[in-house]
Amino acid sequence: MGDYLTTLLITVGIYTILSLSLNIIVGYAGQISLGHAAFWAIGAYSFAVLTTKYSIPFVEAAFFSIVITTLVGIFLGLPSLRVSEDFLAITTIGINFIVQGIFNSFDYFGGAMGIGNIPFPTMHGDMISNNTFLFITYLLVALTIIISYIFKVSWAGLASFAIKDDELAADVSGISPVIFKLLSFAIGSALAGLAGILYASFMGFISANDFSFPVSVAILAMVMVGGEGTILGPIFGAFLLILLPEFFRPIHSYRMFLYGILLVLMMIYQPNGFFGKKGIVWSMIKKS
């Protein structure tokens, strides 16, 4: 496979993990998050710092990075227990700006220069090929899908959906909003951390701008355009929003304009996403 295609597919894979992980927070538990890139960043930066500054081996560093991202995710999920939907949307935007600001300003995190020389995975002392990396990426995508599926069909999923529909009714029915909101933040951010490790390791170099607020918007757009709460939807959304611009290369200059228009039209005509209730794709699947 050519380098271009491999890189593109790895990017799609990483974004699929991101959109599925955000889907657990937004689509399952109903907590608006416009700061998912921050969790991604925390995963990537943890991995970069652990490997380059402390020379911790790849697998151990990956493990600790996920632990760190999960803990930070639970911590940053705490506002969701206190504030209402709209406040949460703005709070998560704030989290994104603050996290990006911290990585951008402190020398410990490389400052504006970012962190380079992040290790690529090796096998028997040799770096693995890009195609092997691609394979590993999609194994992890599969793992993310399995986790999403298990969550969705388990009672934890049902409890989350109940909280999403009516938090107070769930509370008096014995379902703790605290536990299940934080659970969704924990799992969602753990998976975002995983995506961060993949990204940092594949790129070899990260800087705070890679995780800016528009990236969070894009991830949320993938979830919403595909269909929040479904599993196929966010996967489709990631493929669509990463691959579509590639097809639009000839009219490169209009890309972002069309992206904006697409978001508006989707929300007006397909508010539940392509795979959501009354979505075009879902209706076609049901018919056939």
Binding site: I32, E85, M224, G260, L263, M266, P271
Partner: peptide, 18 residues
């Protein structure tokens, strides 16, 4: 739900600037 109009709003904003 408010998230839908929020995303539409962000879309309008992006499209306007572009």
């Amino acid at each position: 739900s408010p998230i839908i109009s929020l995303i539409a709003s962000i879309g309008v904003f992006i499209a306007t600037q572009e």
